[in-house]
Nucleic acid binder design. Structure first.
Length: 657
DNA sequence: ATTCGGAAAATTTTT
DNA sequence: TTTTCCGAAT
């Protein structure tokens, strides 16, 4: 079938900036060249400022590829670029937009040899990284039994924190898990071997995409020069959540021409656990002398009642830029505080209220339930299911992190990169009668081979493994051979081949919900159809861990209540928002107490939660909760609520009818 | 020496 | 729902 592309050729209508922006926004959008900081409070049209700014630059004659737009998620970038295209007749796809990780990857793909990698490196997602760290621990012969040694997950967190904050492993351990300080030398050794192993195997984890990006720019002036010449204008969104490395990257790229505009809100910095420094935004004007500071405070999103509460959350804070959200919307109901007997009553209240709202004509898609930690959503999920209220969960295990998805992707990975140890071992141990030991043996042979995919067919491997494992191996090698012979057909078809292979029997045997998993895989194949290049497909997926099932399936969102962690709700908004589990020990969580905790960040998190809401805000907390031991404890209301003046909310009392 | 099966434990927040 | 740990089975 013939396919048509669309190119806009009509001349762009001139944008009427004065009419479409408020005075504060206008000043920021029309800012002249040079460093600029835009402090944009929640709901103040931050995205609008960024998109109009980009459109303005384009109208001025800046060409799209000269603009670098760094955002917090890939989705935010594409959304902004889409809106730019509505404003100006320019092919916005030519603008470099995405997360630091995306842009880093794009550039590293071209220059990785300069750093001792090959350009076709494989990106490790978090689970891959964990597996590799565990492998390193095993290979290093650390005695994990004598003293309790941190697990892969924990080690990764330590290593990642140290790298993202540019500090030593020792400091990271002291900060995160001080009780492991006595094992510091072993942990340091693991960190070193992990880094070495990644280089040997041509792997980059998420942190590497940032750190090697920065290293590339600082150690190779000719590369830095090339890109800082190319990107004449740099815009960074959510600058309050950048870490030291990211700030350095901005510096290295834009330090010369200084046409850097950073946008953010220091009150919404909620990622310090992964190294974000809200100092970055606070100190920006000092680092960039002559920087102009623009403040955008008019809030278009929320009612005065909600903003009053939001402003009070952060009242008395010393640090940061002074700003007060100024309402423009008409008055609405006061936020409600509901104390419930226990978690079940909390869930029942919310479900009931949602049904009432639906009766009043509120669209379910305009309702969100926000919480601090994913597991806080469990009772709610059960209650909504029981009452057949449709909902979508945007936290917890992500679509691409599910076992069967990762299995099938591993088949594709070994075709794309036959030296991918993690992917090989993952699928090898799924062969009947093959476990870790046999997988090690097979990998040793593959590793030494000049062409691993051809070695699959020889008799070298059957000779090395036990007779029990040979039949399984035979079928497996056939599948690999078939994939290899069709490597050019595109990821979607390859996924189909894996599904038709012996792997299907494995799935049936292993999982009780086989049907649903097969359906997932069909959707994955469906999704893959939009890619014709295997490497690109795998790259995107590795960095899309945060994508939920619904993003992949393109299910219409407007019919479902959204359940989300507050972190994931950043940048989004709903008419009705429930913030749940507002009890001491839950939100703020126990981990935020004490010297190593970060109570101020928790408070900002509460601020983010409240400011997601347009009309009706509900704060709930159970008064009694069952501990894991089975014991019932009385919960204190969250200090965030106790600290609020009483005029911020009204209290509702529940009674049986 | 390995694999496999069942029971127990564990889940902050994420590019 | 998944990882981890341990003893039985091959």
């Amino acid at each position: 079938m013939k396919k048509y592309g669309i190119k806009k050729v009509a001349p762009a209508g001139k944008i009427d900036y004065e009419n479409e922006l408020n005075p504060q926004q206008l000043k920021a959008v029309l800012a002249s060249d040079g460093p600029a900081l835009v402090i944009a409070g929640a709901g103040s049209g931050k995205t609008r400022v960024v998109t109009y700014r980009v459109a303005y630059l384009l109208e001025k004659g800046v060409s799209p590829e000269e603009i670098l737009l760094l955002t917090f998620t890939k989705k935010a970038a594409s959304e902004m670029l889409r809106r730019v295209e509505d404003l100006v007749m320019v092919d916005a796809a030519r603008i470099w937009g995405g997360t630091f990780h995306h842009v880093g990857n794009r550039i590293l793909r071209l220059h990785a040899e300069l750093l001792g990698f090959k350009n076709n490196y494989t990106i490790l997602d978090r689970d891959d990284s964990r597996v590799l760290v565990d492998t390193v621990v095993r290979e290093a012969g650390v005695d994990t039994k004598a003293k309790r040694f941190p697990k892969g997950r924990v080690l990764l967190e330590i290593i990642g924190y140290a790298r993202n904050t540019d500090t030593t492993i020792e400091e990271a351990v002291e900060m995160k898990v001080p009780h492991f300080l006595e094992l510091i030398s072993e942990i340091e050794m693991v960190a070193v071997r992990y880094a070495r192993k990644k280089k040997e195997l041509n792997y980059m984890d998420f942190d590497d995409l940032l750190i090697y990006f920065a290293e590339l720019l600082s150690h190779h002036p000719e590369v830095a020069d090339k890109y800082s010449r190319q990107f004449k204008y740099i815009l960074v969104d959510e600058y309050q959540d950048t870490n030291r490395i990211q700030a350095r990257i901005v510096d290295l790229l834009g330090g010369g021409h200084r046409n850097i505009m950073v946008v953010g809100d220091d009150s919404q910095s909620i990622y310090s656990f992964r190294g974000a420094l809200f100092r970055n935004i606070r100190d920006f004007p000092n680092i960039y002398q002559g920087c102009r500071v623009y403040t955008v405070e008019t809030n278009y999103r929320s009612t005065p009642e909600i903003l009053h509460l939001a402003n009070r959350i952060l009242a008395g804070r010393e640090d940061g830029f002074q700003k007060t959200l100024r309402p423009i919307k008409k008055s609405g109901p006061r936020p409600a505080l509901i104390r419930t007997e226990n978690v079940y009553e909390q869930a029942e209240f919310i479900a009931q209220r949602i049904l009432e709202l639906a009766d009043e004509g509120v669209n379910l898609g305009e309702i969100a339930i926000l919480y601090r930690s994913h597991f806080h959503s469990m009772e709610i999920q059960m209650e909504l299911t029981r009452r057949e209220i449709p909902f979508t969960v945007r936290s917890g295990l992500r679509f691409f992190e599910q076992a069967h998805i990762k299995d099938v992707l591993s088949y594709l990975k070994v075709i794309d990169n036959p030296r991918d140890e993690i992917a090989w071992k993952r699928i090898l141990v799924e062969i009947p009668r093959v476990g870790v030991r046999t997988a090690d043996k097979i990998w040793d042979i593959l590793k030494e081979s000049a062409e691993p995919l051809s070695t699959i067919s020889g008799d070298k491997i059957p000779a090395a493994i036990s007779s029990g494992a040979r039949p399984g191996w035979g079928k497996f090698s056939l599948t690999i051979r078939e994939l290899k012979n069709n490597a050019g057909v595109g990821p979607s078809e390859l996924i189909g081949m894996v599904m038709d292979s012996e792997y299907d029997y494995y799935l049936q045997a292993k999982y009780s919900n086989y049907e649903r998993r097969v359906e997932d895989l069909r959707q994955l194949a469906n999704y893959a159809a939009r890619y014709d290049n295997l490497e690109k497909f795998l790259d995107e997926l590795a960095m899309m861990g945060g994508v939920s099932t619904n993003d992949v399936f393109a299910v219409p969102q407007d019919e479902m209540v959204v359940l989300s962690t507050i972190h994931q709700s950043k940048g989004l908004e709903w008419d009705v928002v429930f913030v749940i589990w507002l009890a001491e020990g839950r939100f703020p969580p126990a981990s935020s107490y004490g010297d190593n905790g970060n109570m101020e960040e928790e408070r900002r998190l509460f601020y983010v939660a409240g400011t997601r809401c347009r009309e009706e805000l509900y704060l709930t907390h159970p008064m009694i909760a069952r501990q894991r031991s089975g014991e019932e404890t009385i919960l204190q209301p969250s200090r965030f609520i106790q600290d609020l003046p009483a005029d911020c909310y009204e209290e509702w009392q529940l009674f049986d009818i």
